[in-house]
Simulated scan of single mutants.
Amino acid sequence: MPFDRINGIVIHHQVEGPESGAPTIVLVNSLGTDFRIWNDVAAAFSGRYRIIRYDKRGHGLSEVPPPPYRMEDHAADLLALLDHHLVPSCLVVGLSIGGEIALGLAALDETRLAGLVLMDTAHKIGDAESWDARIAAIEKDGIGAIAPQILSRWFTPGFRTPDNPAFTGYSNMLLNSPLPGYLGSCAALRDADYTETARKLAIPTLLMVGDQDGSTPPDLVKSCADLVAGSRFEVVAGAGHLPPIEQPEATVRLVGGFADAVFGAKAAA
């Protein structure tokens, strides 16, 4: 069933791939999107991995609790989702706020993580002033008022063209985001700081970022990689903030190679 009450709220989620015997990869999407941004990645991996995707609280078709949210709420939802599907350990791939949710899970119970892919994210994103300004602008005039600025950070100029149907579709995804859910997660991002969690990570970790990411630029993601002992850092050419959309093949190659190394040759066969 794609809908279940998990951690007290209804979560929309999808499970693909082998029902038993395969390692699990969980894909956690970014602010203002739903789990469809992972379509190409999930399709590439579902033959050999069990793939779990979900709409985080306040996004997509999941329930929209009143804002504000805490990152700890998102992390608790993810932990409850793993419990719901009887997943003892997994690789979590978190994009943007999804990466901070993954770090939140590490802070709650790192033993549930076989590894982490922190994609276009960091231990801390932005500051209170910038997030409060975004919240105020959206409360006054809606997401549409700042959508052009957000989309310019999400996508490269070559992708942001009127004749690109995908750009129109993903623009609509942002514009149709539930307003309370978006605002709630902005508050969670404003208040979250996982610097110490990143410093203490003791699991395999890959950090990757689009070379033209305007939301979490390469230098910011590299600063997070520098905190994580033994981590690997990769830059995806020709991508903004959402490499699974603009560069799905490169995303699959990097995440797939890392997953195969984390889970071993058996999963790669």
Results as ranks from 00 to 15, higher is better:
54 Y>D: 01
73 D>W: 07
3 F>H: 15
221 V>N: 04
94 G>Q: 04
86 L>T: 15
165 P>K: 06
162 P>F: 10
237 A>W: 00
191 D>I: 04
91 L>R: 14
166 A>N: 08
104 G>F: 09
137 A>D: 14
230 G>A: 14
89 S>P: 01
49 Y>F: 15
100 E>A: 13
54 Y>H: 13
135 I>G: 04
62 S>M: 14
132 D>C: 10
219 D>F: 06
199 R>L: 15
44 A>I: 02
24 T>P: 01
115 G>K: 02
179 L>N: 01
30 S>K: 01
106 A>P: 10
136 A>M: 07
204 P>V: 14
73 D>Y: 07
96 S>G: 06
63 E>P: 04
210 G>D: 11
197 T>R: 12
239 A>H: 03
200 K>H: 14
8 G>P: 01
230 G>P: 11
246 E>K: 04
127 D>Y: 04
121 T>D: 05
198 A>K: 09
78 L>H: 07
27 L>F: 14
263 F>E: 12
157 P>K: 05
54 Y>T: 02
72 E>I: 11
152 S>R: 15
265 A>T: 10
72 E>M: 09
202 A>H: 12
163 D>F: 07
199 R>F: 08
236 V>F: 08
93 V>L: 13
76 A>V: 02
227 L>W: 03
222 K>F: 07
8 G>R: 05
16 E>H: 12
143 I>E: 07
85 H>D: 11
40 D>E: 13
87 V>N: 00
73 D>V: 02
261 A>C: 07
262 V>M: 13
11 I>D: 05
50 R>G: 06
92 V>C: 09
152 S>M: 11
106 A>N: 08
208 M>C: 14
102 A>L: 15
89 S>V: 08
70 R>G: 00
83 D>F: 04
60 G>D: 00
155 F>Y: 10
17 G>T: 10
130 S>W: 04
110 E>D: 06
206 L>K: 03
110 E>C: 03
83 D>S: 14
96 S>W: 01
268 A>D: 04
45 F>Q: 06
13 H>A: 08
7 N>S: 15
213 D>R: 03
114 A>R: 15
81 L>F: 06
102 A>D: 12
196 E>R: 14
85 H>S: 08
131 W>L: 04
102 A>Y: 12
211 D>M: 13
